[in-house]
Simulated assay, not measured.
Amino acid sequence: MSWNTKPRLEIVDTSPGHGPDNPFSPPMEFRGDEKEFKALVLARYRRDHWLRQWLDLLARRHRLGRPYAVTGPWRNPMREIIEDLSHAAPSRLGGKN
């Protein structure tokens, strides 16, 4: 993550090729299907603390009915991931949800 710019945490862009500043973006050469996209994001979720926090925040926003946006070609499977996480156990960020 580039710390020179503040990320807009309520916006998820799934457009390919956005590099390390966008954990929701598959590599430019990604040719997988929705299942493979979900596997990619969930693998990143398991190993990347920053992404876990970001996804937990989005899941909480979803659960509370607060706005967020998902754009790009992989928006539907990304929304499914956020919705699934919103029904999971309380956030790792602490506190009750």
Rank of each mutant, 00 (worst) to 15 (best):
K96R: 09
S25I: 07
V41Q: 03
G17S: 05
S91D: 09
L64V: 01
E80W: 02
A59T: 09
E10Q: 12
D21C: 06
T71I: 09
W54N: 02
P20R: 08
A69R: 07
M1P: 07
F24E: 03
P26D: 06
P16W: 06
V41W: 08
A89Q: 12
R66V: 00
W74N: 00
D56N: 10
R44M: 01
W3R: 15
P26K: 06
D84Y: 06
G95S: 00
Y45D: 12
S15D: 04
S15T: 12
M78G: 08
D13E: 12
L9F: 08
E36C: 00
R31F: 09
F37L: 04
R44K: 13
L55N: 00
R61T: 02
W54L: 11
A88M: 08
M1R: 07
V70L: 08
A43C: 03
G19M: 07
E83Y: 13
K38E: 15
A89I: 11
P23C: 01
I82E: 00
F30P: 01
A43K: 13
N22L: 04
Y45K: 12
G32L: 07
P23S: 02
Q53L: 14
R47G: 07
R61L: 14
E80Y: 02
R66N: 03
K6W: 14
W50R: 13
L58F: 04
D21R: 11
R31S: 07
F37V: 01
G19W: 01
R92K: 11
P23K: 09
E36M: 09
R46W: 11
L51N: 04
T14D: 05
D33I: 05
M1S: 05
F24Y: 14
T71Q: 09
S86F: 06
L57G: 13
G32A: 09
S2N: 14
G72E: 00
W74F: 13
L51I: 01
E29T: 13
D21Q: 10
K96E: 15
M28D: 14
I82M: 04
